[in-house]
Design a protein around this nucleic acid. Sequence first.
DNA 1: GCCGGCGTTTACCACGTGGCAGAGAAAGTT
DNA 2: AACTTTCTCTGCCACGTGGTAAACGCCGGC
Lengths: 347, 347
Amino acid sequence: MSALAVTQEDVARRAGVARKTVSNVISDYPHVSDRIRKRVLAAIEELGYQPNRAAQNLRTGRSGMIGLAVPELDVSYFAELTRLVVQATERRGLTVLIIQTFGDLIREHASLNGFGHQRLIDGLICSPIASSGDDILNRGGGFPVVLLGEQVSVAPDHAGIDHVGIDNVAAARTATEHLLSLPRRRVAFVGASRSTDSHMADLRLAGYRQALASAGVPLRPELVFSVNGYHRRDGAEAGRRILALPPEERPDGVFCANDLLAQGLMRALHDTGYRIPHDVAVVGFDDIDEATYSIPSLTSVSPDKAQIAETAVALLLDRVNGSDEADHDTVTDFSLVVRESTAGPRR
Amino acid sequence: MSALAVTQEDVARRAGVARKTVSNVISDYPHVSDRIRKRVLAAIEELGYQPNRAAQNLRTGRSGMIGLAVPELDVSYFAELTRLVVQATERRGLTVLIIQTFGDLIREHASLNGFGHQRLIDGLICSPIASSGDDILNRGGGFPVVLLGEQVSVAPDHAGIDHVGIDNVAAARTATEHLLSLPRRRVAFVGASRSTDSHMADLRLAGYRQALASAGVPLRPELVFSVNGYHRRDGAEAGRRILALPPEERPDGVFCANDLLAQGLMRALHDTGYRIPHDVAVVGFDDIDEATYSIPSLTSVSPDKAQIAETAVALLLDRVNGSDEADHDTVTDFSLVVRESTAGPRR
DNA sequence: GCCGGCGTTTACCACGTGGCAGAGAAAGTT
DNA sequence: AACTTTCTCTGCCACGTGGTAAACGCCGGC
């Protein structure tokens, strides 16, 4: 390790110049003669010099890293999004520090505060679950934040926060309307939040309600299923609750708040011999890779993840660089991808 | 941001002591009076002081971060493993920098070299794909490395590299033997490496061969399918190649090198009306969460991921702290989880 | 009452870098 | 030829921290 601790000082000695001249060459200071520049660059090459990021960070106050706080990486949607954010960030020469919050308020708070003001990151892209709008505004990090996903209701006069995401209400309405158009009449919603603080779930439930209302279908509270979480097991559990209903009260269509719930639900229904889509049509949300390959393949709302990632990174870096101080609330595109789980009429 | 740049200096002023005394309190220097310690801790609390990691890093040469280099986060196995590694590391008070290599040699090399000797990380847990043993040994980072997954053949006299993983050959043999015991006789292997440099694929193929040999079943080269990658789409493509065979030559059992291949394969076979396991029994590898919930659920080799993560972190930190200099090659446990995809005899 | 020893607190330095401005040389101007 | 301007290069400083060792004060012992 010591063998490779090449500093600007070493380079300077090798090139026969002052240490500061090496620094000047590196930072593209304009007034450096070509002769010296070449000599320094040659020495850098020969010694394999690489800047010490800790020193740069200490001197400049910038870490060259941005944080990405997501609930869980083993939820495919976040894994796919993370990949895209990392790629977008690396294209711009920065590093991403990935933080898993596990939906835990304390961890979210810690990341919003930049890990206790340790200035590990220059900015944060955050997919909040537990944090309220107030938590986010009262953050102490002092760095720019871009929120992903559901719109958190923040007062407009609080600067420093951008938002990127799709219109969850419209997307959920589209999904539900699709089920109604098959046609299905007993359309359930799986994924209301049992802990009552998931804004995402509220928005998707609102879209579901709007679609029912527009179609003149009465909302049946017994067809709105709450969940403890948004994993396959929670979907399976909801499926078992559906099966506990008297047969004539069971839904013939289900809109799930995300794809994992839908997968678990389909699995539970399948166990009892239910056929999808013949007995129950299912729509998911997120369009993870698995939705294409599952049996049956899953109709799903597909947010434009690449657009989300690209926009979030661009907005954040604009702020980090101070080139844009305005607050942005960017609504990204989505589409409904129709697959086997809603193909065909009720048998 | 400037509002929260609380330094030891600020704390010292507040507590009416020297800056160094604050440092001593923080680093638990024994000879500090209780009176002063309390005063300093109170000041730290009041001002919300948090150490500046850049400065610590610069001074100590330690970043407090370890790297975790995985091919892709949106491959569930790595996402699940990443989660466990992060949790094991955080329990020990360190931070994980997650690096996606995308199986790219250059990126792997960069991470092995600590991002150009920038000393961003104190150690690395690496799941290599493209790198050969030589690449790993010739790394310039100068920090400890723990390799995950397949055993890379490194000369034993090269210190500084630990290895953690299951016995891939034995695991593959177990999986194949299970298929043979159903009984199935035309057992295929899907996942030989087309690029010929995946050591993991070689090992799993070797286990497959051993099982066939032990059972006295001749190896049929036309039943060994190569893939370009290890995603669902590659499994689906292999499935289409299987279906291109004359019906009597098609396998009645398939061992896939990982679960994603198996999912893609099952999907492709399902498209043509094949029943799993009645027509073809399928075994995967990794036991990702999805294997439990897919239709049919997937029999899979289940490496003890928690054990892998825990062991890897423990070994790495032992080296980082200099408390253990010996080379370790830890073989972790695995089991075969039997599910629907191999339940029952050929119809 | 002076001294040695121990417990406690402090001063100084270095880690490697970028901002700032000065020093020296070359070129242009009067 | 002397002066100003421009271009190159350099030295000094600070970022916030931890290691080293010195300074300080208190106590007990002779």
